[in-house]
Amino acid sequence: MSKDLSVTVAGVRFPNPVIAASGTYGFGQDYTDLYPLNKLGGISCKGTTLEPRNGNPAPRIAETPAGMLNSVGLQNPGIDMFITGYLPQLKKDGNVIIANIAGATLDDYKQAVERLDSTDVDMIELNISCPNVKQGGASWGVTCDGAAAVTKTVRAVTKKPLMVKLTPNVTNIVDIAKAVEAEGADCLSLINTLLGMRIDIRTRRPILKNNVGGFSGPAVFPVALRMVWQVANAVDIDVVGMGGITTAADAIEMMMAGAKAIQMGTAIFTDPYSPLKVIDGLEKYMEENDLNSLEEIVGTVQPW
C-alpha cells in the first residue's frame, strides 16, 4: 500500500518531493503545533543574510485575486543566529534542511556561505532574486553576468549541494539558467515572486509601504509552469519547481514539466495542511498509475 515517494535532487535524497518554500515557513518552528516538520520532504529556510536585517516598513502584505503580494524585505536574524540558534533544532526535527542565502555584495554571499560550509546543513539555496530589496539579490539575478558571478563566488567556497533560485522578472530566464549552470550550480529552483503592485483607490496610495512587492499564489502557477518547462528543457542539472502550487495535481503538472521536486509557499497560508494534502495526493496518484517512483513522471509532458 504505502509507496516510496522519495526523489533525489542534486544528489540529495528527499523522502517526498514537497518542500516548504523560503520565506513562508520561517525556520520550521511555527507550524509544529499542527504537524511535525519531518512530514515535509524538506524546508527551505527564511532568506538569511550575513548581518541581521529588519526588512521593509509595514504594510508588507496585500491580497490579490488568487494570490498575494509581499514586501517583507528579507527580515532575518543573520547567518550566525541561523547556524547557532535554528539549525540544530531544524536538523533534529526535519528532513532535508536548506539554507536560503541572500546578499548585497559578492562578499556577503561568500562570507555567509563559508560559514555554512562547516555546518551540517544539507543544501544551500542562493537567493539572487528577492524583488523587495535593492541589491537584495534581485540585481544579481536579472543579468547573466550577475547570476554567474554570484554562483561562481559561492561555488569556490562550498562543496555543499548548491541550488540557485531564479527570478521570473527577466527577459529570458533560460539564458540566466544556463549561465548559472555553467558556473557550477548543482540545481535550480524557480520561480521566485513576480514583481507586482496594488493601489488603495480611496487614499491613492499603494497598499504596500514599499510600493511594489512579490506576487505569489495560485494566479502565478501557469507562468511558473511555463518557465520550469523551458528551463528544464534547456539545462542538464535538476530543477525544483515552485510558484502557486496548491494541489497534488499542480505538483504533478510541475513534475511533468520537468521539476524533480516542488516547493509550496502561499498555499500554506491559506491552508497549513496543504503540503500534507499534496503528499497524500501524490501517493494516491502513484498507486492509481502503478508508479514505483515519482521520478518516472519528471519531464514526461509530451508537447504538441
Binding site: G26, D30, K46, A58, P59, I61, A62, V72, Q75, F269
Partner: peptide, 26 residues
C-alpha cells in the same frame, strides 16, 4: 493590527516597531 499572511509567525509579514531598553526591534 496589521495586514497579515500566515498568522503564526512564519512569514514575518505583519511587522510592528517596538523599542525596548533603548533598542529598536521589528
Amino acid at each position: 493590527e496589521q495586514r497579515m499572511a500566515c498568522g503564526v509567525g512564519a512569514c514575518v509579514g505583519c511587522a510592528c516597531n517596538i523599542r525596548k531598553g533603548g533598542r529598536d526591534f521589528v
